[in-house]
Design a protein around this nucleic acid. Structure first.
Length: 148
DNA sequence: GCCAACGTTGGC
DNA sequence: GCCAACGTTGGC
């Protein structure tokens, strides 16, 4: 039998924690990722499929990946857009990382130097390659080098 | 179709 | 608070 389901895709989504942070998502159990007004970010939102996984990144304050969420509903129209042209998705928290991975650490890691997060620093929704996803998960299992 | 001016995002 | 990197807008 042919397997139809594609591998899940990986993403990274930014939010300012004083506006909407990881804890807010956990409290709500499910959140709608809307208000994106950048075409490349919107294209990424439209590409997402239900079941895809995404890092939750705290921008502005924290500057770190704090948790993993799952796309619970894909292909939505942004409810905050009166013209109905922009895209949105729904997300559910999966788990918090054992420790947050900071932007500083990502920048210092050669394996992650090519991440879309770094190449397009202003992009609020970016893609993550499977190798990068796995690498970050491995990093989160270990302590920061140099700390005891 | 170019480009200057301006606005926004996000890191420092 | 500043500034770099983009995106958008509007005059020409």
């Amino acid at each position: 039998m042919t397997k139809i389901d594609a591998e899940p895709q990986f993403w990274l989504m930014k939010s300012e924690p004083d506006v909407y942070g990881w804890d807010d998502l956990v409290e709500q159990k499910e959140g709608t990722w809307d208000g994106v007004r950048n075409h490349l970010a919107a294209r990424n939102l439209r590409t997402m499929k239900q079941g895809d996984l995404a890092f939750f990144y705290h921008s502005n304050i924290g500057l770190e990946i704090v948790g993993i969420m799952k796309i619970s509903k894909a292909g939505m129209t942004d409810p905050t857009d009166p013209d109905g042209k922009w895209a949105a998705v729904k997300v559910k928290p999966v788990k918090k990382l054992k420790r947050a991975i900071t932007l500083k650490e990502i920048k210092a890691t050669p394996e992650l130097a090519d991440m879309e997060l770094l190449r397009q620093s202003r992009l609020s929704v970016s893609g993550v390659r499977p190798s990068e996803w796995d690498f970050i998960l491995e990093m989160a299992k270990r302590k920061l080098p140099g700390t005891k």
